[in-house]
Amino acid sequence: MKDYDWMAHEIGQNIVEVTMRFDEESRRFLVRDLPDDRLERALRIQAAIRAATHEHELKQSRADLMACIEELTLNAEKLLGEKEAKPSPPRIAQLCMSLLAPKKSAQALLGDLLETFHKNADRFGEKEARRMYWFEVVSSAGPWIKRLFFAVVVDYVRSKFGL
């Protein structure tokens, strides 16, 4: 416990006014019903001073704690903002990819593309990463278009020749 300057001033019978000077403020309070014995009086006044000091320090640590909480909240908000600002692949491209990807491996493929997108964004920037993501989508559309084309041709041949 820190020692602060204090002054005791007798203002009446068995009443003492104590003025304490803390770091940036001073506090005045009364100690009443003091006994006649000088030693006991001194002990009572010292106990009151200790109590006031303790109260002041508690108030101070509460203020420090509040400041810490405020700082933590600000940091958390900042981090959340950064997380939200993290680049993400084009939504339409993601949708196309989820439609084109084979059912069994669709989730793994989309996850891999997202992981690659973040790596590319860190390495080449968001714009280039987005372009590369679109390239992946277009590349995956190739086999799908081929399959669709063959399906249409086969269907046409079957209907034409009644197979």
């Binding site: 990807a101 690659t116 390239f135 992946e136 590349s139 190739g142 086999p143």
Partner: peptide, 28 residues
């Protein structure tokens, strides 16, 4: 050996990017 690891291995050793969809189509 998962998608990204295979993709990067091919990119490093073949010096060209094989599309992820091609890799997955072959894996399947």
């Amino acid at each position: 050996a998962y998608g990204v690891a295979i993709y990067e291995e091919l990119k490093t050793r073949l010096n060209k990017a094989v599309p992820m969809a091609t890799i997955y189509a072959n894996l399947e």
